[in-house]
Write a protein that binds this DNA or RNA. Structure first.
Length: 652
RNA sequence: GCUGACGUAGCUCAAUGGUAGAGCAGCUGAUUUGUAAUCAGCAGGCUAAGGGUUCGAGUCCCUUCGUCAGCUCCA
């Protein structure tokens, strides 16, 4: 006998249906068009296949191609299976790893005797199209552990995963055509639903993300419901490539990285240095207003200092090897380039006795540090070996911690959101495996960070195990042009260093106490931040940051002296003005200034000379020129620069 | 660091194992231009570095350095 169950639909209506009905059948009952468009269903909030039977009362929502992220997730997961089906067909010896959906696409990991070539990818993609054409039905089976062991006996990676599943977990196997996979699902009804996909690239990836385990070959792809969406996505990738800071850095002559100097070491050309300089000014001015003191400390130090701080040996892999002082009195003394500034700031703190009345003490320094990062991780300005950190260390009483963190979050918001309109995401990173200090200290520190975040009413993610070895931290992630996330701001609590350096202050009880300590960088590093800014603005910087703010162009040589006078007047007023008096046509010089993304061009012809005006052309505004007096132009420039407006011609 | 691809003029790219080219940029000259490329000429290279195979290597092989994608790591 078949029992009846009650299905609640999103509009609140209730359907009485026999138990064992599938969500696909429910869709069919509602309407054939819905059934046609259906991809999967949400049953009590969980995503299910359309052909999975429902046995008890539930809320059901049919997901269609237009249901957004959930539906795409299912499509891409199924695409990964189609990929694996094709790979297995062409490379029967391939063993399968994991194949999940990811943002914008999917991947699948394979253990194969040799890596995939670009040719292989083309063949695999063609084979995938055959699988799609065959319109294989995705079937779901629940199997016993023994059964699963038998079925995956040739796939050791799957067996490894299988053995980790708890006894209470359902073991499900999904099949399509000849392919079967240990998989939680869900999937689209059949492979024919996957029409618009493309394989993007192949690369090595460690099994389970562990660099001690074997390397598998990962194939990345993207998949969409509509042809337009796929094309738009591919176009978006191309557009993003045009914003790549490495390409723009070359075109706009901002910086270079040269083999003669070394990987990850930046040469800031004059035009790039301007941007860095403006950022330094901004943060230094702001920090002074907020009660910090600026300090300067050396780039190298006796190695003992980093032993005392605990960086050696824990951080040694990231440090450059020691250098000897050479012949003479200090022959045996070994020095190290600094990877961090904390020990120096600590020594400044400890250089005299401190009272509770002095706290908090906030020491700030935009400093160069050197970290020997793995060569394969270096990436333009976004990951370098010579870093300019806008670093600071705060020493305070325990009861001041929360307020200090609160203030740092405020400074972060000022810089990232108010000044730059960055969308940013916060993470609370907790204790890692490699750490110093006991669990009680970590517990306390993690709570303090949480309290400040909650007090500011911020939402944040948890990054379990992502903390620094000396304490938990709050990290800010900013996306680059192609959507990769990079850490910018970091706020870290540290209970270890004050202990190691025996830091003290004299409390109101006239007894010594240990201060709390925090590290923080708002930009993170100037290298990375400038890199992200280049991509954010696609090289077209707002006036206050632009390497060249105005380019003065004379129409013929006759206006040369007058143009030069205007240029010099602007420069004397602090405007970054350049003059283009090359023997080229006006059109040529305008084109050049546009390509260099100069915010304003000031064109000076005979009419302008006679009237004491300039013809102002705004970047990107075509030939909508504006004739104004030199005085008015200069006033406008000054106002816009001071306002740090992100848009040309607009002062907030 | 690992896996793979790649490295040719300042830049972007060509060159079935058989004399290294083009466009732009640069230099010289002509031209004096009113809002996205004026014309002509000239110069520019030990093909990343080092080794090997070959009558002959930019091209094939090895090593090193570097770049790119991803993994790991991280500001």
């Amino acid at each position: 006998m078949s029992a009846t169950i009650r299905i609640t639909l999103p509009d609140g209506s209730v359907k009485e249906v026999p138990a064992g009905i599938t969500t696909g059948e429910i869709a069919q009952q509602i309407g054939p068009r819905l059934a046609q468009a259906a991809v999967a269903a949400k049953v009590d909030g969980a995503i299910w296949d359309l052909n999975r039977p429902i046995q008890k009362d539930a809320r059901v929502e049919i997901l269609t191609e237009t249901s957004g992220a959930d539906a795409l997730y299912v499509l891409r997961h199924s695409s990964a299976h189609v990929l694996a089906t094709a790979v297995r067909q062409l490379f029967p010896e391939a063993r399968i790893g994991f194949g999940p959906p990811i943002d914008d696409g999917f991947y699948y990991d394979f253990e194969v005797p040799r890596p995939f070539t670009p040719d292989d990818l083309e063949r695999i993609e063609a084979a995938m199209r055959d699988v799609v054409k065959a319109d294989q039905r995705f079937g779901r089976e629940e199997v016993s552990r023994d059964d699963a062991r038998r079925r995956f006996r040739d796939d050791p990676l799957k067996i490894e995963r299988l053995e980790e599943l708890g006894d209470e977990e359902t073991i499900s196997v999904y099949t399509n055509g000849p392919f079967f996979d240990l998989c939680r699902g869900p999937h689209v009804p059949s492979t024919g639903r996957i029409k618009h996909f493309k394989l993007l690239h192949a690369a090595g990836a460690y099994w389970r993300g562990d660099s001690r385990r074997q390397m598998l070959q990962r194939i990345y792809g993207t998949a969409w419901f509509k042809k337009d969406d796929l094309e738009q996505y591919l176009r978006r990738l191309e557009e993003a490539a045009k914003r790549d800071h490495r390409m723009l850095g070359k075109q706009l002559d901002l910086f270079s990285i040269q083999e003669d100097v070394g990987p990850g070491l930046i040469l800031w050309h004059p035009r790039g240095a301007v941007i860095q300089f403006q950022l330094r000014r901004l943060i230094e001015d702001e920090v002074i207003k907020r009660g910090y003191d600026l300090v300067y400390t050396p780039n190298i130090t006796r190695e003992e200092l980093f032993k005392r701080s605990g960086h050696l040996p824990l951080y040694e892999a990231n440090q450059f090897p020691p250098m000897a002082a050479g012949a003479g009195e200090a022959e045996e003394v070994r020095y190290r380039a600094k990877p961090m500034n904390c020990p120096f700031h600590i020594l400044i703190y400890a250089s005299r006795q401190r009272s509770y009345r002095d706290l908090p003490i906030r020491l700030a320094e935009v400093a160069n540090v050197y970290r020997n990062e793995l060569s394969g991780t270096l990436h333009g300005l976004l990951r370098v070996r010579g870093l300019s950190m806008d670093d600071a260390h705060i020493f305070c009483r325990e009861d001041q911690i929360e307020e200090e963190i609160f203030q740092m979050l405020d400074l972060t918001d000022f810089v990232l959101r108010q000044v730059f309109s960055f969308e940013y995401r916060l993470d609370l990173a907790t204790r890692p495996e490699k750490k110093i200090g006991d669990d009680a200290q970590w517990e306390f520190a993690e709570k303090a960070l949480k309290a400040a975040l909650d007090r500011r009413g911020l939402t944040y993610g948890m990054d379990q195990g992502g903390g620094a070895f000396y304490g938990p931290k709050i990290d800010v992630k900013i996306r680059d042009a192609i959507g990769r996330e990079w850490q910018g701001t970091t706020i870290q609590l540290d209970y270890q260093l004050p202990e190691r350096f025996q830091l003290e202050y004299i409390g109101s009880d006239n007894k010594p106490h240990r201060p709390a300590m925090m590290h923080r960088a708002i930009y993170g590093t100037l290298e990375r931040f400038v890199g992200l800014l280049i991509e954010q603005f696609a090289g077209a910087f707002p006036l206050w940051l632009a390497p060249e703010q105005v380019r003065v162009l004379s129409i013929t040589d006759a206006q040369g002296p007058a143009a030069k006078a205007i240029h010099e007047r602007l420069r004397a007023a602090g405007v970054r003005s350049h003059m283009d008096e090359r023997n080229e046509t006006l059109n040529y010089r305008i084109r050049d200034a546009e390509l260099q993304k100069v915010p304003y061009m000031a064109v000076v012809g005979q009419r302008e000379v006679d009237q004491g005006t300039v013809a102002v052309r705004t970047r990107g505004a075509g030939n909508k020129q504006e004739i104004i007096s030199v005085d008015a132009f200069l006033e406008r420039l000054k106002r816009e620069i001071a306002s740090r407006s992100l848009e040309l011609g607009k002062t907030p």
